[in-house]
Amino acid sequence: MLYVVLFFLVFSLLLYVVLAGADFGAGIVELFSSEKNQQITKKTVYRVMGPVWEANHIWIIIIMVILWVGFPGFYNILVLYLHIPLTLVLLGITLRGVAFVFRHYDAYKDKSQILYDWMFRISSLVTPIFLGMTFGAMISGNITVTDNYETLSFYDLFIAPWCNGFSFFVGLFFAALCAFLASVLLIGEANEVERAIYVKKSRIATITVIILGFVVLSYGYINETTFVIHFIKNPYAITLAALSALLILPLLRSIRRARKVTTRTFTGLQVVLILIAALIAQYPNLIITSESEISILETVATDSVIKVLGITLIIGGLVILPGLFHLLKSFKMIKIFEQ
């Protein structure tokens, strides 16, 4: 049953990154567009994301719940030492969610739209950066686990874990990944004239992702970050990362030929490959502190809890996944079946 739970954990994480990532990315693409294109993007984003908007963001709640129920000790470390970036993520999620509804449901479309738009765009950029920083912080090796809070300074305990170069670059990398997902998604949804905008954007995003990926790895390598060393030495991780890199060529070609389905498949696959590579490199020691590595399996809840959690997840999955699939299909997010 433990593996069922872990499966749902990884599955939710991947879905969150891909779906919510594309959603954050849409705001980032909008942020970095000319004024005219911003309005176009706004409309397209609403059409594409509107129906699934809520659902995309619930994955993070599922992740939290699985962590606190199934892996309480692991969760405990995250919420204790990464309190600040998580709070900032929350702040971003809140402002962004609110801005999204406001700009579409305000009965009057007047000047206040400008405010909503900027709130939406800026929080779309900031939130994934902090989310990425939180991921980065988990593996940056700067967390100090202790019972004596008095002996260490506030900075060492609660700031240093996430406020460092490595985490920051992971944050930027993650935001770029989101922009990449979104721009590719948008290509398929735009009409002939607008498509050119997103083709250009997705090229820029692809290149940014590659550059930032290198930055993260080389920064980590130079500073001898444990994670990066493990990553580079792990044959599976490297193979997957290489595979993901190899996909870039067919992806670019597919973008040029405006092949919607293949483009999306390649994009999703790339992101999933990168994530799995990172997970494999570190599994099961998903937190790296300044002294040791903490395994997610060390802190697992008792069998009875895991069993009930697993069963709940399976039942929930059986209800939710067909519904989600149907929703995506009804509103033509995926057109695999039409082709």
């Binding site: 659902a55 619930i58 709640i61 599922i62 719940v65 699985i66 606190w68 129920v69 199934g70 309480p72 969760y75 809840a301 008792t302 809890v305 009930v308 959690l309 709940t312 997840l313 039942i315 929930g316 209800v319 939710i320 519904g323 989600l324």
Partner: peptide
Amino acid sequence: AGPIIGMPFSLEGAAFFV
């Protein structure tokens, strides 16, 4: 408490999702 009251929360997650 997390593991003990996880059940309502995970079911709640499912209900929210629906």
